[in-house]
């Protein structure tokens, strides 16, 4: 009990480090992120481009320069996958963190204040949960932003397209975290250490920030990780349907839209982006699963 000063996090990290599957998945994920965000340097090194079209080198076969060949517009497929990954992977990260943030605020508010606040927020959560997710996402993705008063220039910009996806996936994705955080908060506010802080006259904000959230962080981390995977899948579906990332930007989903039409002649072009999605999402899910068992309180030495 009074062994050397080991914090909870060190214990957890040790448990995670023993989980070979999770560790392997984590390495794959780190490698994937690293490769995608070094796309510009890799292009220089290989002397290829994943962005500009080159009609003289369409459908090049695989060789030392074009590791995965080139596509229908003569762009290098490998570095194009990396470029698409920048968008897909970063949207996954941002939208997952965004969802968790919104979910944490709503869940903690509902669980802390209870009563009518809780009732209203939870009915709202149920309301969001019963939304047919994909159709509503498509509608949101297709909304004409000029009707909401945004300028034409802004609406057509690549940044608007990118952040629109982040935003809508965030808006529809916070419900799981909200429920988890609410449940955790409901039980935490009954704990005596919270009563002790309240007896001192601590503000609600302080109690939530110092006592409730740090103790609820475990399910939040796990849910955020798993959410990243589903965000990447959602983004790819929206982009595949043509309402997500718009050209000239590219994501793994939008690459599949083009590749679909070339299926009969160049099936490999449809294999790579999908395989990239599968690899990223499966790695994320294994990491999330590993975190879940590493964080399991039943394994905590009390």
């Amino acid at each position: 009990m009074t062994e050397a000063s080991v914090s909870v996090w060190q214990l957890r990290w040790r448990r995670l480090a023993r989980d070979r599957v999770a560790l392997g998945a984590l390495s794959v994920l780190v490698l994937l992120y690293g490769l995608c965000f070094s796309a510009a340097w890799i292009e220089v090194w290989l002397d290829v481009t994943g962005v500009d079209t080159d009609l003289m080198s369409r459908f090049d076969p695989i060789d030392a320069r074009h590791w995965l060949g080139s596509d229908e517009a003569g762009r290098d497929e490998f570095t194009r996958i990396l470029r698409g990954g920048q968008i897909s992977l970063s949207i996954g990260l941002f939208a997952a963190i965004g969802s968790s943030f919104v979910g944490t605020v709503i869940g903690a508010t509902a669980g802390y204040f209870r009563g009518r606040v809780d009732m209203v927020l939870m009915r709202f959560t149920d309301f969001m949960l019963a939304m047919p997710a994909l159709p509503v996402l498509i509608i949101l993705a297709a909304i004409d932003l000029t009707k909401l008063g945004f300028s034409q220039d802004f609406v057509r910009s690549g940044a608007a397209g990118y952040w629109r996806i982040v935003l809508i996936v965030t808006l529809l994705g916070w419900t799981t975290v909200a429920r988890l955080v609410r449940a955790a908060t409901l039980s935490l506010v009954e704990r005596e250490f919270v009563l002790a802080a309240r007896a001192q006259g601590a503000s609600s904000l302080r109690i939530l920030w110092v006592h409730v959230l740090p103790n609820a962080v475990t399910p939040i981390i796990v849910a955020t990780t798993l959410r990243m995977g589903s965000v990447i899948l959602t983004e790819s579906a929206l982009s595949f349907l043509g309402v997500g990332i718009q050209p000239p930007s590219t994501s793994w989903g939008s690459m599949l839209t083009n590749a679909q039409e070339l299926m009969a002649s160049n099936p490999l072009l449809a294999v790579y982006p999908g395989a990239a999605i599968l690899m990223a999402v499966i790695a994320i899910n294994f990491v999330g699963d590993g975190l879940q068992s590493a964080f399991d309180p039943r394994a905590d030495p009390h």
């Binding site: 995977g229 899948l233 790819s236 579906a237 595949f240 989903g253 599949l256 679909q260 299926m263 009969a264 099936p267 449809a270 294999v271 982006p273 999908g274 999605i277 599968l278 999402v281 499966i282 994320i284 899910n285 294994f286 699963d289």
Partner: peptide, 22 residues
């Protein structure tokens, strides 16, 4: 199970169409 959770359904469909139909 993890592969099933992680695979994009439209991509899976695409591959199947290529393999079994085309």
């Amino acid at each position: 199970a993890f592969a099933g959770i992680s695979v994009p359904s439209f991509w899976l469909g695409l591959l199947m169409i290529y393999l079994f139909a085309v």
